[in-house]
């Protein structure tokens, strides 16, 4: 594959000997305009990568916070077309920050995989994390995405054993997303004593950067991860900050965007000081 924005960003981070911050928010939560303001603000809050959730009614691998965010986004009228539109508007102003769409397969399957990949590429999307497409289903979307020069980022779990790991890594590009615990998003976080052997195991099998996610909620936890991984993924904690700033009818407070971005900056600060 030719070099992508994701590859370039990791290279730059490596040069600075710094781990990256991957931030996750749900597209359209609580509404299109607020969500777009958040996405636009993330690079200034020193997020290195933006994971943009594509809302789905049945997010089986996510906890209550992210499911609620998806519910708010759908209630505000978010659709796949609008999510791509959000990326397009962001990309018009920011050529460098990678955007990764994360979600579940059905809305993409419903849109039509080929048409979706082509529209996503056109909008400025760099990669995908599709929770319910394991390597066994690579023909569905992973291979077509790679064929178009888009990264298909694979989830690796603590249950992924030695025999399976090479199979999982085979068609992975961009980076590897290590799910640090067995469980759903927003649960407990892994301890460094759990993470270190897992990192060593992964590093022995791949040269791709490794991002660690699930359960990272504070600057201190992010710093802990940033010492040993190439990037830390923070999702639920940001979503919870968004939820905090919502009033009746999910109306955002005047300071919601500012408050959420300040929280993201605090996480970024933790990561910057980690090494």
């Amino acid at each position: 594959m030719t070099e992508t924005r994701i590859d370039r960003r990791f290279k730059a981070l490596k040069k600075k000997n710094r781990a990256g911050l991957v931030t996750y928010i749900m597209a359209g939560d609580p509404d299109f305009d607020t969500s777009l303001s958040l996405v636009r603000g993330l690079p200034k809050a020193r997020a290195d990568f933006i994971e943009l959730g594509m809302p789905f009614t049945d997010p089986m691998a996510d906890g209550p916070s992210i499911q609620a965010a998806a519910g708010r986004a759908l209630a505000s009228g978010q659709t796949m077309v609008r999510t791509l539109e959000m990326v397009r508007q962001f990309r018009a102003e920011d050529e460098a920050t990678p955007i990764i769409l994360m979600g579940y397969y059905n809305p993409i399957y419903s849109y039509g995989v080929d048409r979706f990949l082509s529209d996503a590429k056109d909008a400025g999307v760099d990669g995908f994390i599709i929770v319910d497409l394991p390597t066994e289903e690579d023909d569905e979307m992973c291979k077509p995405a790679m064929g178009m020069g888009l990264n298909f980022i694979r989830l690796v779990a603590p249950t992924t054993d030695e025999q399976r790991l090479p199979v999982v890594l085979a068609n992975t590009s961009g980076f590897v997303y290590y799910i640090s615990i067995t469980g759903i998003t927003g649960g407990r976080s892994a301890t460094s004593s759990e993470l270190e052997p897992a990192m060593a195991r992964l590093k022995g099998q791949t040269d791709l950067p490794i991002a660690v996610g699930f359960g990272i909620k504070t600057p201190a936890q992010a710093a802990e991860v940033a010492k040993i991984a190439d990037a830390a993924v923070v999702g639920t904690a940001i979503i919870d900050q968004i939820a905090c700033g919502l009033g009746a009818g999910n109306k955002p407070s005047m300071t919601l965007v500012e408050d959420v971005l300040a929280f993201v900056s605090s996480i970024a600060e933790g990561i910057a000081e980690a090494r």
């Binding site: 089986m60 691998a61 397969y105 929770v131 319910d132 497409l133 394991p134 390597t135 066994e136 289903e137 694979r154 989830l155 690796v156 779990a157 603590p158 249950t159 992924t160 054993d161 399976r164 999982v168 799910i179 067995t182 469980g183």
Partner: peptide
């Protein structure tokens, strides 16, 4: 062998569950 009946069926689960 992939658990498909024609195009239907399959194994569309998160990686954590796949080994299980």
């Amino acid at each position: 062998e992939d658990g498909r009946f024609g195009i239907f069926g399959g194994r569309f689960v998160a990686e954590t569950l796949m080994p299980l």
